[in-house]
Design a protein around this nucleic acid. Sequence first.
DNA 1: CGAGCCATTGAATGCCATCAATTTTAGTGG
DNA 2: CCACTAAAATTGATGGCATTCAATGGCTCG
Lengths: 237, 237
Amino acid sequence: MITSNYNTLPNFKKCNKCVNCNVRLIAFCGVIDHQDINKLESLSKDKNLKRQEHAFFQGDKVVNYYNIRKGSVKIYKLSKDGRKQIIGFLFPGDFMGMSHEESFSYSAEAIEDTVLCQFNKVGLENFFIKFPEIEDKILNLVNYELSLAQDQIFLLGKCSARERLLQFFLNMSKQRKKMGWVSNPIHLPMSRSDIANFLGLTIETISRSLSELKSDNTIKMVGTNDILLNIHEDLIS
Amino acid sequence: MITSNYNTLPNFKKCNKCVNCNVRLIAFCGVIDHQDINKLESLSKDKNLKRQEHAFFQGDKVVNYYNIRKGSVKIYKLSKDGRKQIIGFLFPGDFMGMSHEESFSYSAEAIEDTVLCQFNKVGLENFFIKFPEIEDKILNLVNYELSLAQDQIFLLGKCSARERLLQFFLNMSKQRKKMGWVSNPIHLPMSRSDIANFLGLTIETISRSLSELKSDNTIKMVGTNDILLNIHEDLIS
DNA sequence: CGAGCCATTGAATGCCATCAATTTTAGTGG
DNA sequence: CCACTAAAATTGATGGCATTCAATGGCTCG
Protein backbone atom coordinates (compact mmCIF):
# COMPACT_ATOMS: atom_id res chain seq x y z
CA MET A 1 0.00 0.00 0.00
CA ILE A 2 1.43 3.33 -1.00
CA THR A 3 0.60 6.21 1.26
CA SER A 4 1.83 9.72 1.82
CA ASN A 5 0.35 9.87 5.28
CA TYR A 6 2.90 11.43 7.58
CA ASN A 7 1.97 9.04 10.35
CA THR A 8 3.78 6.33 8.48
CA LEU A 9 6.99 8.32 8.21
CA PRO A 10 8.90 8.20 11.50
CA ASN A 11 10.88 11.37 10.94
CA PHE A 12 8.09 13.38 9.43
CA LYS A 13 7.40 15.01 12.77
CA LYS A 14 10.46 17.11 12.39
CA CYS A 15 9.46 17.90 8.81
CA ASN A 16 6.61 20.40 8.94
CA LYS A 17 3.83 18.23 10.23
CA CYS A 18 1.66 21.27 10.91
CA VAL A 19 2.37 23.02 7.62
CA ASN A 20 0.56 20.28 5.74
CA CYS A 21 -2.16 19.70 8.29
CA ASN A 22 -5.60 20.15 6.78
CA VAL A 23 -7.27 20.39 10.19
CA ARG A 24 -5.36 23.60 10.84
CA LEU A 25 -7.85 25.48 8.69
CA ILE A 26 -10.45 25.27 11.42
CA ALA A 27 -8.39 24.55 14.55
CA PHE A 28 -6.89 27.16 16.88
CA CYS A 29 -3.45 26.66 15.34
CA GLY A 30 -4.76 28.17 12.11
CA VAL A 31 -4.17 31.65 13.48
CA ILE A 32 -0.41 31.06 13.44
CA ASP A 33 1.17 31.65 10.05
CA HIS A 34 3.59 29.39 8.24
CA GLN A 35 6.85 30.94 9.45
CA ASP A 36 5.87 30.55 13.12
CA ILE A 37 3.95 27.29 13.08
CA ASN A 38 7.06 25.20 13.72
CA LYS A 39 7.42 26.88 17.13
CA LEU A 40 3.96 25.67 18.06
CA GLU A 41 4.67 22.29 16.52
CA SER A 42 7.61 21.76 18.85
CA LEU A 43 5.17 21.97 21.76
CA SER A 44 2.93 19.31 20.27
CA LYS A 45 3.06 15.58 20.71
CA ASP A 46 0.93 12.98 18.94
CA LYS A 47 -1.43 10.83 20.94
CA ASN A 48 -3.22 7.92 19.33
CA LEU A 49 -6.38 6.47 20.75
CA LYS A 50 -8.13 3.30 19.73
CA ARG A 51 -11.89 3.00 20.03
CA GLN A 52 -13.01 3.16 23.69
CA GLU A 53 -9.67 4.49 24.90
CA HIS A 54 -9.79 7.65 26.98
CA ALA A 55 -7.85 10.88 26.55
CA PHE A 56 -8.63 11.70 30.19
CA PHE A 57 -11.11 10.93 32.94
CA GLN A 58 -13.45 13.06 35.00
CA GLY A 59 -11.54 14.11 38.12
CA ASP A 60 -8.07 13.89 36.52
CA LYS A 61 -5.87 16.91 37.01
CA VAL A 62 -5.61 19.04 33.86
CA VAL A 63 -2.05 18.85 32.54
CA ASN A 64 -2.60 18.76 28.79
CA TYR A 65 -4.77 20.37 26.15
CA TYR A 66 -5.70 18.56 22.98
CA ASN A 67 -6.56 19.22 19.38
CA ILE A 68 -8.42 16.50 17.58
CA ARG A 69 -6.72 15.84 14.26
CA LYS A 70 -8.53 12.69 13.20
CA GLY A 71 -11.39 10.57 14.50
CA SER A 72 -14.17 11.35 16.97
CA VAL A 73 -14.44 11.69 20.72
CA LYS A 74 -17.40 11.63 23.07
CA ILE A 75 -17.30 13.60 26.31
CA TYR A 76 -19.52 12.50 29.18
CA LYS A 77 -20.26 13.07 32.83
CA LEU A 78 -20.80 10.42 35.48
CA SER A 79 -22.82 11.10 38.62
CA LYS A 80 -21.99 9.58 41.98
CA ASP A 81 -24.79 7.05 41.63
CA GLY A 82 -23.45 5.88 38.27
CA ARG A 83 -25.70 7.65 35.82
CA LYS A 84 -23.94 8.67 32.63
CA GLN A 85 -24.74 11.55 30.31
CA ILE A 86 -22.91 12.27 27.08
CA ILE A 87 -22.58 16.05 26.86
CA GLY A 88 -20.97 16.31 23.44
CA PHE A 89 -19.18 14.79 20.48
CA LEU A 90 -15.90 16.28 19.27
CA PHE A 91 -14.41 16.06 15.80
CA PRO A 92 -11.26 17.05 13.87
CA GLY A 93 -10.37 20.67 14.55
CA ASP A 94 -12.02 20.75 17.96
CA PHE A 95 -10.04 21.92 20.96
CA MET A 96 -10.42 19.86 24.11
CA GLY A 97 -9.33 19.78 27.70
CA MET A 98 -9.88 23.26 29.13
CA SER A 99 -11.54 23.52 32.50
CA HIS A 100 -12.45 26.38 34.80
CA GLU A 101 -10.90 24.47 37.66
CA GLU A 102 -7.94 22.21 38.39
CA SER A 103 -9.51 18.96 37.28
CA PHE A 104 -11.79 17.72 34.52
CA SER A 105 -15.52 17.72 35.08
CA TYR A 106 -16.04 15.10 32.37
CA SER A 107 -14.31 12.18 30.64
CA ALA A 108 -13.21 12.02 27.01
CA GLU A 109 -13.38 8.70 25.13
CA ALA A 110 -12.58 7.93 21.50
CA ILE A 111 -15.54 6.46 19.62
CA GLU A 112 -13.33 5.45 16.71
CA ASP A 113 -9.58 5.38 16.10
CA THR A 114 -8.44 8.90 16.86
CA VAL A 115 -5.32 11.04 16.66
CA LEU A 116 -4.79 13.97 19.00
CA CYS A 117 -2.23 16.75 19.15
CA GLN A 118 -1.29 17.00 22.78
CA PHE A 119 -0.02 20.26 24.25
CA ASN A 120 1.29 20.78 27.73
CA LYS A 121 -1.15 23.13 29.42
CA VAL A 122 1.44 25.46 30.91
CA GLY A 123 3.55 25.36 27.79
CA LEU A 124 0.67 26.42 25.58
CA GLU A 125 -0.44 29.09 28.03
CA ASN A 126 3.05 30.56 28.05
CA PHE A 127 2.76 30.64 24.29
CA PHE A 128 -0.25 32.96 24.65
CA ILE A 129 2.10 35.77 25.70
CA LYS A 130 3.99 35.77 22.40
CA PHE A 131 0.94 34.90 20.30
CA PRO A 132 -2.15 36.39 21.93
CA GLU A 133 -4.17 35.59 18.82
CA ILE A 134 -4.11 31.95 19.95
CA GLU A 135 -5.90 32.84 23.15
CA ASP A 136 -8.38 34.96 21.16
CA LYS A 137 -9.11 32.00 18.94
CA ILE A 138 -9.46 29.59 21.84
CA LEU A 139 -11.82 32.00 23.57
CA ASN A 140 -13.86 32.02 20.39
CA LEU A 141 -13.86 28.21 20.25
CA VAL A 142 -14.97 27.92 23.88
CA ASN A 143 -17.77 30.39 23.15
CA TYR A 144 -18.75 28.15 20.25
CA GLU A 145 -18.82 25.11 22.53
CA LEU A 146 -20.96 27.08 24.95
CA SER A 147 -23.35 27.95 22.17
CA LEU A 148 -23.62 24.27 21.19
CA ALA A 149 -24.31 23.34 24.80
CA GLN A 150 -27.07 25.94 24.96
CA ASP A 151 -28.60 24.54 21.80
CA GLN A 152 -28.54 21.13 23.44
CA ILE A 153 -30.32 22.53 26.50
CA PHE A 154 -33.06 23.80 24.20
CA LEU A 155 -33.25 20.43 22.51
CA LEU A 156 -33.54 18.52 25.78
CA GLY A 157 -35.96 21.00 27.31
CA LYS A 158 -38.34 21.58 24.45
CA CYS A 159 -38.10 18.98 21.67
CA SER A 160 -39.87 15.66 21.12
CA ALA A 161 -37.96 12.45 20.46
CA ARG A 162 -38.44 12.78 16.71
CA GLU A 163 -37.33 16.42 16.72
CA ARG A 164 -34.26 15.62 18.81
CA LEU A 165 -33.11 12.96 16.41
CA LEU A 166 -33.69 15.05 13.30
CA GLN A 167 -31.94 18.04 14.87
CA PHE A 168 -29.04 15.78 15.75
CA PHE A 169 -28.69 14.74 12.12
CA LEU A 170 -28.88 18.36 10.98
CA ASN A 171 -26.20 19.32 13.51
CA MET A 172 -23.97 16.48 12.32
CA SER A 173 -24.45 17.62 8.76
CA LYS A 174 -23.52 21.17 9.72
CA GLN A 175 -20.44 19.86 11.49
CA ARG A 176 -19.38 17.94 8.40
CA LYS A 177 -19.79 21.03 6.26
CA LYS A 178 -17.67 23.03 8.70
CA MET A 179 -14.89 20.47 8.29
CA GLY A 180 -15.21 20.67 4.53
CA TRP A 181 -16.60 17.16 4.27
CA VAL A 182 -19.67 16.00 2.41
CA SER A 183 -22.61 17.20 4.50
CA ASN A 184 -25.24 14.92 2.95
CA PRO A 185 -25.34 11.95 3.17
CA ILE A 186 -23.58 11.75 6.52
CA HIS A 187 -21.81 8.89 8.23
CA LEU A 188 -22.47 8.48 11.93
CA PRO A 189 -19.38 7.32 13.84
CA MET A 190 -21.30 6.79 17.09
CA SER A 191 -23.55 3.92 18.17
CA ARG A 192 -27.33 4.11 18.64
CA SER A 193 -26.66 3.79 22.31
CA ASP A 194 -24.47 6.92 22.32
CA ILE A 195 -27.00 8.86 20.26
CA ALA A 196 -29.78 7.84 22.62
CA ASN A 197 -27.79 8.83 25.69
CA PHE A 198 -26.78 12.17 24.19
CA LEU A 199 -30.38 13.00 23.27
CA GLY A 200 -31.79 12.03 26.64
CA LEU A 201 -33.66 9.05 25.18
CA THR A 202 -33.40 5.24 25.00
CA ILE A 203 -32.15 3.15 22.09
CA GLU A 204 -35.67 1.85 21.57
CA THR A 205 -37.02 5.35 21.15
CA ILE A 206 -34.18 6.21 18.75
CA SER A 207 -35.02 3.12 16.73
CA ARG A 208 -38.70 3.99 16.61
CA SER A 209 -38.10 7.63 15.69
CA LEU A 210 -35.67 6.48 13.04
CA SER A 211 -38.28 4.17 11.52
CA GLU A 212 -40.76 7.03 11.57
CA LEU A 213 -38.34 9.38 9.78
CA LYS A 214 -37.66 6.66 7.23
CA SER A 215 -41.31 5.85 6.59
CA ASP A 216 -42.30 9.44 5.95
CA ASN A 217 -39.26 9.87 3.73
CA THR A 218 -37.55 12.58 5.78
CA ILE A 219 -34.41 10.49 5.75
CA LYS A 220 -33.12 7.47 3.89
CA MET A 221 -30.58 5.00 5.20
CA VAL A 222 -27.68 3.32 3.46
CA GLY A 223 -26.36 0.59 5.71
CA THR A 224 -26.81 1.14 9.44
CA ASN A 225 -24.84 4.32 9.91
CA ASP A 226 -25.19 6.41 6.79
CA ILE A 227 -28.05 8.79 6.49
CA LEU A 228 -29.35 10.77 3.56
CA LEU A 229 -31.38 13.82 4.53
CA ASN A 230 -34.33 14.59 2.25
CA ILE A 231 -34.59 18.13 3.53
CA HIS A 232 -34.25 21.53 1.96
CA GLU A 233 -30.62 22.58 1.72
CA ASP A 234 -31.28 25.68 3.86
CA LEU A 235 -32.14 23.49 6.80
CA ILE A 236 -29.10 21.33 6.29
CA SER A 237 -26.54 24.13 6.23
CA MET B 1 -33.52 57.25 54.54
CA ILE B 2 -29.78 57.55 54.87
CA THR B 3 -27.74 55.57 52.40
CA SER B 4 -24.16 55.43 51.29
CA ASN B 5 -24.98 53.67 48.05
CA TYR B 6 -22.98 55.26 45.28
CA ASN B 7 -25.93 55.04 42.95
CA THR B 8 -27.50 57.88 44.87
CA LEU B 9 -24.48 60.12 44.46
CA PRO B 10 -24.49 61.69 40.98
CA ASN B 11 -20.78 62.49 40.86
CA PHE B 12 -19.61 59.26 42.43
CA LYS B 13 -18.93 57.79 39.03
CA LYS B 14 -15.88 59.98 38.69
CA CYS B 15 -14.84 59.06 42.23
CA ASN B 16 -13.55 55.50 42.16
CA LYS B 17 -16.75 53.63 41.55
CA CYS B 18 -14.83 50.43 40.86
CA VAL B 19 -12.47 50.75 43.81
CA ASN B 20 -15.35 50.29 46.22
CA CYS B 21 -17.26 47.77 44.14
CA ASN B 22 -17.87 44.58 46.10
CA VAL B 23 -18.77 42.64 42.96
CA ARG B 24 -15.23 43.11 41.71
CA LEU B 25 -14.06 40.33 44.00
CA ILE B 26 -15.61 37.75 41.74
CA ALA B 27 -16.00 39.61 38.43
CA PHE B 28 -13.40 39.77 35.64
CA CYS B 29 -12.39 43.28 36.70
CA GLY B 30 -11.00 41.82 39.92
CA VAL B 31 -7.78 40.91 38.12
CA ILE B 32 -6.94 44.60 37.69
CA ASP B 33 -5.34 46.13 40.72
CA HIS B 34 -6.27 49.41 42.38
CA GLN B 35 -3.84 51.70 40.55
CA ASP B 36 -5.09 50.59 37.12
CA ILE B 37 -8.77 50.06 37.77
CA ASN B 38 -9.68 53.65 36.89
CA LYS B 39 -8.50 53.00 33.31
CA LEU B 40 -11.03 50.18 33.02
CA GLU B 41 -13.65 52.25 34.78
CA SER B 42 -13.43 54.95 32.12
CA LEU B 43 -14.55 52.33 29.58
CA SER B 44 -17.58 51.40 31.63
CA LYS B 45 -21.04 52.89 31.57
CA ASP B 46 -23.93 52.09 33.87
CA LYS B 47 -27.06 50.53 32.47
CA ASN B 48 -30.15 50.16 34.62
CA LEU B 49 -32.85 47.64 33.82
CA LYS B 50 -36.23 47.34 35.41
CA ARG B 51 -37.92 43.95 35.69
CA GLN B 52 -38.72 42.49 32.25
CA GLU B 53 -36.48 44.95 30.42
CA HIS B 54 -33.91 43.44 28.08
CA ALA B 55 -30.17 44.05 27.90
CA PHE B 56 -30.25 42.66 24.36
CA PHE B 57 -32.26 40.39 22.09
CA GLN B 58 -31.45 37.22 20.20
CA GLY B 59 -30.27 38.30 16.75
CA ASP B 60 -28.97 41.72 17.84
CA LYS B 61 -25.47 42.57 16.73
CA VAL B 62 -22.95 42.31 19.56
CA VAL B 63 -21.63 45.79 20.34
CA ASN B 64 -21.35 45.70 24.14
CA TYR B 65 -20.26 43.35 26.88
CA TYR B 66 -21.79 43.50 30.33
CA ASN B 67 -20.95 42.83 33.94
CA ILE B 68 -23.88 42.32 36.25
CA ARG B 69 -23.39 44.47 39.33
CA LYS B 70 -26.78 44.09 40.96
CA GLY B 71 -29.96 42.11 40.32
CA SER B 72 -30.62 39.01 38.20
CA VAL B 73 -30.95 38.27 34.52
CA LYS B 74 -32.43 35.32 32.65
CA ILE B 75 -31.05 34.36 29.26
CA TYR B 76 -33.29 32.43 26.88
CA LYS B 77 -33.57 31.17 23.34
CA LEU B 78 -36.61 31.39 21.08
CA SER B 79 -37.17 28.97 18.23
CA LYS B 80 -38.80 29.96 14.95
CA ASP B 81 -42.08 28.35 15.99
CA GLY B 82 -42.16 30.37 19.20
CA ARG B 83 -40.96 27.88 21.76
CA LYS B 84 -38.91 29.44 24.53
CA GLN B 85 -36.20 27.86 26.64
CA ILE B 86 -34.40 29.61 29.48
CA ILE B 87 -30.77 28.52 29.27
CA GLY B 88 -29.46 30.24 32.36
CA PHE B 89 -29.77 32.76 35.16
CA LEU B 90 -27.04 35.34 35.71
CA PHE B 91 -26.18 37.14 38.93
CA PRO B 92 -23.85 39.86 40.27
CA GLY B 93 -20.29 39.26 39.10
CA ASP B 94 -21.32 37.36 35.99
CA PHE B 95 -19.97 38.44 32.62
CA MET B 96 -22.47 38.55 29.78
CA GLY B 97 -22.68 39.23 26.07
CA MET B 98 -19.90 37.27 24.41
CA SER B 99 -20.76 35.31 21.33
CA HIS B 100 -18.81 33.15 18.91
CA GLU B 101 -20.44 35.02 16.05
CA GLU B 102 -21.55 38.53 15.12
CA SER B 103 -24.94 38.41 16.77
CA PHE B 104 -26.49 37.05 19.95
CA SER B 105 -27.92 33.55 19.96
CA TYR B 106 -30.11 34.35 22.97
CA SER B 107 -31.94 37.20 24.70
CA ALA B 108 -31.14 38.64 28.13
CA GLU B 109 -33.97 39.91 30.33
CA ALA B 110 -33.86 41.31 33.86
CA ILE B 111 -36.01 39.32 36.30
CA GLU B 112 -35.70 42.05 38.94
CA ASP B 113 -34.31 45.59 38.99
CA THR B 114 -30.78 45.22 37.72
CA VAL B 115 -27.65 47.30 37.24
CA LEU B 116 -25.11 46.44 34.55
CA CYS B 117 -21.63 47.76 33.77
CA GLN B 118 -21.62 48.16 30.02
CA PHE B 119 -18.37 47.95 28.07
CA ASN B 120 -17.92 48.63 24.40
CA LYS B 121 -16.89 45.32 22.86
CA VAL B 122 -14.03 46.70 20.76
CA GLY B 123 -12.90 48.99 23.55
CA LEU B 124 -12.64 46.15 26.03
CA GLU B 125 -10.96 43.86 23.52
CA ASN B 126 -8.33 46.53 22.85
CA PHE B 127 -7.81 46.60 26.58
CA PHE B 128 -6.81 42.92 26.43
CA ILE B 129 -3.54 43.94 24.77
CA LYS B 130 -2.35 46.00 27.74
CA PHE B 131 -3.94 43.72 30.32
CA PRO B 132 -3.93 40.15 29.03
CA GLU B 133 -4.94 38.92 32.49
CA ILE B 134 -8.43 40.23 31.72
CA GLU B 135 -8.73 37.92 28.75
CA ASP B 136 -7.38 35.05 30.85
CA LYS B 137 -10.05 35.71 33.45
CA ILE B 138 -12.83 36.02 30.88
CA LEU B 139 -11.71 32.75 29.28
CA ASN B 140 -11.96 31.19 32.72
CA LEU B 141 -15.44 32.63 33.23
CA VAL B 142 -16.65 31.36 29.87
CA ASN B 143 -15.29 27.93 30.75
CA TYR B 144 -17.26 28.15 33.97
CA GLU B 145 -20.42 29.02 32.04
CA LEU B 146 -19.75 26.05 29.77
CA SER B 147 -19.38 23.81 32.78
CA LEU B 148 -22.73 25.04 34.17
CA ALA B 149 -24.37 24.39 30.80
CA GLN B 150 -22.98 20.86 30.79
CA ASP B 151 -24.35 20.29 34.28
CA GLN B 152 -27.72 21.47 32.99
CA ILE B 153 -27.52 18.99 30.11
CA PHE B 154 -26.99 16.22 32.65
CA LEU B 155 -29.92 17.48 34.69
CA LEU B 156 -32.26 17.59 31.69
CA GLY B 157 -31.08 14.28 30.30
CA LYS B 158 -30.96 12.15 33.42
CA CYS B 159 -32.86 13.64 36.37
CA SER B 160 -36.46 13.30 37.52
CA ALA B 161 -38.64 16.33 38.22
CA ARG B 162 -37.95 16.14 41.93
CA GLU B 163 -34.20 15.81 41.40
CA ARG B 164 -34.15 18.72 38.96
CA LEU B 165 -35.84 21.03 41.42
CA LEU B 166 -33.66 20.03 44.35
CA GLN B 167 -30.52 20.35 42.26
CA PHE B 168 -31.70 23.79 41.18
CA PHE B 169 -31.99 24.86 44.82
CA LEU B 170 -28.54 23.46 45.59
CA ASN B 171 -27.08 25.32 42.61
CA MET B 172 -28.73 28.56 43.73
CA SER B 173 -27.31 28.04 47.20
CA LYS B 174 -23.85 27.47 45.75
CA GLN B 175 -24.21 30.63 43.68
CA ARG B 176 -25.16 32.63 46.77
CA LYS B 177 -22.14 31.32 48.63
CA LYS B 178 -19.88 32.27 45.72
CA MET B 179 -21.19 35.83 45.95
CA GLY B 180 -20.56 35.83 49.67
CA TRP B 181 -24.26 35.91 50.50
CA VAL B 182 -26.17 33.70 52.89
CA SER B 183 -26.41 30.33 51.16
CA ASN B 184 -29.22 28.92 53.30
CA PRO B 185 -32.03 29.91 53.38
CA ILE B 186 -32.09 31.27 49.84
CA HIS B 187 -34.37 33.78 48.19
CA LEU B 188 -35.53 32.94 44.68
CA PRO B 189 -35.77 36.04 42.46
CA MET B 190 -37.42 34.14 39.59
CA SER B 191 -41.03 33.05 39.13
CA ARG B 192 -42.26 29.45 39.23
CA SER B 193 -42.86 29.79 35.54
CA ASP B 194 -39.20 30.64 34.90
CA ILE B 195 -38.01 27.80 37.12
CA ALA B 196 -40.28 25.37 35.31
CA ASN B 197 -39.11 26.52 31.90
CA PHE B 198 -35.44 26.37 32.91
CA LEU B 199 -35.83 22.83 34.26
CA GLY B 200 -37.72 21.55 31.23
CA LEU B 201 -40.92 21.07 33.24
CA THR B 202 -44.33 22.72 33.73
CA ILE B 203 -45.40 24.94 36.63
CA GLU B 204 -47.77 22.23 37.79
CA THR B 205 -44.94 19.73 38.06
CA ILE B 206 -42.81 22.29 39.94
CA SER B 207 -45.67 22.82 42.33
CA ARG B 208 -46.14 19.10 42.88
CA SER B 209 -42.41 18.43 43.37
CA LEU B 210 -42.23 21.37 45.74
CA SER B 211 -45.06 19.95 47.84
CA GLU B 212 -43.29 16.61 47.87
CA LEU B 213 -40.00 18.16 49.05
CA LYS B 214 -41.89 20.06 51.73
CA SER B 215 -43.84 17.06 52.98
CA ASP B 216 -40.77 14.87 53.43
CA ASN B 217 -38.97 17.77 55.09
CA THR B 218 -36.17 18.14 52.56
CA ILE B 219 -36.99 21.82 52.33
CA LYS B 220 -39.04 24.31 54.26
CA MET B 221 -40.63 27.41 52.83
CA VAL B 222 -40.88 30.90 54.29
CA GLY B 223 -43.29 32.88 52.16
CA THR B 224 -43.49 31.88 48.51
CA ASN B 225 -39.93 32.51 47.43
CA ASP B 226 -37.65 31.75 50.36
CA ILE B 227 -36.40 28.24 50.83
CA LEU B 228 -34.61 26.60 53.71
CA LEU B 229 -32.65 23.50 52.77
CA ASN B 230 -32.64 20.72 55.37
CA ILE B 231 -29.65 19.02 53.81
CA HIS B 232 -26.16 18.24 54.97
CA GLU B 233 -23.86 21.22 54.53
CA ASP B 234 -21.56 19.23 52.22
CA LEU B 235 -24.31 18.93 49.69
CA ILE B 236 -25.15 22.60 49.91
CA SER B 237 -21.64 23.89 49.26
C1' DC C 1 -63.38 44.51 49.07
C1' DG C 2 -63.16 42.76 44.57
C1' DA C 3 -60.31 41.77 40.46
C1' DG C 4 -56.70 39.44 38.51
C1' DC C 5 -52.77 36.86 38.62
C1' DC C 6 -50.12 33.14 40.37
C1' DA C 7 -49.76 28.88 42.81
C1' DT C 8 -51.73 24.59 44.13
C1' DT C 9 -54.32 20.39 43.65
C1' DG C 10 -57.08 16.84 41.10
C1' DA C 11 -58.22 13.82 37.11
C1' DA C 12 -57.30 12.12 32.60
C1' DT C 13 -54.24 11.75 28.72
C1' DG C 14 -49.99 10.93 26.22
C1' DC C 15 -45.22 10.27 25.35
C1' DC C 16 -41.42 7.86 26.32
C1' DA C 17 -39.37 4.09 29.33
C1' DT C 18 -39.28 -0.53 30.45
C1' DC C 19 -39.56 -5.29 29.62
C1' DA C 20 -39.47 -8.89 26.29
C1' DA C 21 -38.88 -11.21 21.87
C1' DT C 22 -37.14 -11.20 17.28
C1' DT C 23 -34.24 -9.73 13.49
C1' DT C 24 -30.17 -7.86 11.66
C1' DT C 25 -25.47 -6.79 11.70
C1' DA C 26 -20.69 -7.37 12.61
C1' DG C 27 -16.85 -10.03 13.83
C1' DT C 28 -14.38 -14.57 13.79
C1' DG C 29 -12.65 -18.78 12.27
C1' DG C 30 -13.13 -22.65 9.33
C1' DC D 1 -16.59 -17.23 0.96
C1' DC D 2 -19.63 -19.08 4.18
C1' DA D 3 -21.11 -20.65 8.75
C1' DC D 4 -21.32 -19.50 13.37
C1' DT D 5 -21.67 -16.54 17.36
C1' DA D 6 -22.27 -12.43 19.96
C1' DA D 7 -23.64 -7.91 19.93
C1' DA D 8 -26.58 -4.36 18.27
C1' DA D 9 -30.86 -2.83 16.35
C1' DT D 10 -35.69 -3.30 15.65
C1' DT D 11 -40.41 -4.17 16.89
C1' DG D 12 -44.24 -5.16 20.12
C1' DA D 13 -46.78 -4.85 24.60
C1' DT D 14 -47.25 -2.64 28.86
C1' DG D 15 -46.46 0.76 32.47
C1' DG D 16 -45.12 5.17 34.71
C1' DC D 17 -44.01 9.93 35.00
C1' DA D 18 -44.87 14.29 33.53
C1' DT D 19 -48.23 16.93 30.73
C1' DT D 20 -52.59 18.70 29.83
C1' DC D 21 -56.96 20.26 31.08
C1' DA D 22 -59.75 21.88 34.75
C1' DA D 23 -61.00 23.77 39.22
C1' DT D 24 -59.85 25.74 43.57
C1' DG D 25 -57.18 28.52 46.71
C1' DG D 26 -54.26 32.42 48.03
C1' DC D 27 -51.79 36.64 47.45
C1' DT D 28 -51.28 41.42 45.78
C1' DC D 29 -52.86 45.73 44.39
C1' DG D 30 -55.89 49.03 43.00
